[in-house]
Simulated scan of single mutants.
Amino acid sequence: MKKWALPLSLAAGVLALSGCGNSEGNVIATSKAGDVTDMELYAEMKDKYGPQMEQALEELMQKKVLSDKYEVTDEELDEEVKTAKEQLGDQYEMFLAQYGLDEDGFKEFLKLELLREKAALADVEVTDDEVKEYYDAWQPEINVSHILVEDEAKAKEVKQKLADGGDFAALAKEYSTDPGSAENGGSLGWIDNAGRAQFVPEFTEALGTLKVNEVSEPIKSDYGYHIIKITEQKEKGSFEDLKDQMTEELKQSKVDATASQEKLDEEMKAADVKVEDEDFKDAFKADEAAPTEETLPTEEGTTEEEPAAEDDAAATEEAK
């Protein structure tokens, strides 16, 4: 999964709502008994959801500070949404509903993530030789399915059924003990170059040897026995076509969560951020003690595969 696969919270919802443009005194609900204004709602939320509102304040200020220095285009946001839809498939709408977001709200969340990423990568440098070496080792996206069973005897039985012409998806639904992927005919979805590393070594190694539509022999891991199939593989473009993408991916590989948080703290300090509301006087202090939580996909592969729908997360965990 990509880095957008982060735990979402009330703060994400507040971040999304920040684009609505409410100002002091706006009436947001009416009744014969009286009206409710945005400021009343704000006060109520601050009282009930203090820590989450503090997080929302941090995210809103980060967005303002980083937007003043870095730019995220509509095209970039559309591409991130496209990637999310490809990775989550039919679970995309469930994912949005799980966190109370519509697509515009999700884009607001993604915008902050991309701004953080641009800040973290701003000072990272890579050479042309490093990029070329990375390209040579880089592998294109593959669409992977697997059937996970508990013991070798069952694995051999399933393997024989496949050899006799059995349908992989149907056998996955019947035999696989990985509930998330079994429901989808064994599909784990599209796995990118970095995502291959999310699996246990035996699984990752098998991915590097299989051809499209070739079915593996039973692969033993701590989770049981996997029968793996690559159903599709994207073409690997030329170095010139992929150079910009390779450069960005290589830069990302050189930045960890600690370095990202340090760069974010640096940007906030340079912006001379001050908290005027005493209720939020401790905002921005917690970030100095610990880096932002990240996963996946993740990429990511996965960090925690969490914002992904629960079944998708379960599938990944079983395959690891």
Score class of each variant (00 low, 15 high):
A84T: 10
K274C: 02
E276R: 09
E248L: 10
D129P: 03
E141D: 14
M268Q: 12
G195K: 11
E103W: 15
E310H: 13
K211P: 10
N184P: 00
T316E: 03
E174N: 01
A313E: 10
A120V: 12
T127Y: 08
E304H: 07
D244H: 13
D279T: 12
K229Q: 15
Q52S: 13
Q245A: 15
E150R: 12
V158D: 09
L60A: 11
A97Q: 14
V158W: 15
S260H: 03
V72I: 05
E217S: 10
E293W: 03
E130Y: 05
L114T: 04
M39D: 08
K243C: 05
E306P: 03
G195I: 01
E240K: 02
T37H: 00
D78S: 15
E58T: 10
P291M: 05
Y49V: 02
F280W: 14
E214P: 13
A97F: 05
A259Y: 06
L242H: 06
L110W: 07
T83R: 14
F106Y: 09
K63H: 04
G100D: 07
A43F: 09
K3D: 11
P7R: 00
S216Q: 01
F199A: 00
G50W: 11
S18W: 01
Y92E: 05
G185V: 07
Y135C: 06
K320Q: 11
K154L: 13
F168V: 00
L207T: 04
L6K: 09
E294F: 07
K263Q: 03
E300F: 03
E266C: 05
Q252F: 00
L6M: 10
L77E: 02
L171Q: 13
E300N: 13
M53R: 06
S238K: 07
F199M: 02
I142Q: 12
K111M: 02
F203P: 06
A16L: 05
N184Q: 14
P51S: 08
C20M: 08
K82A: 12
D282I: 15
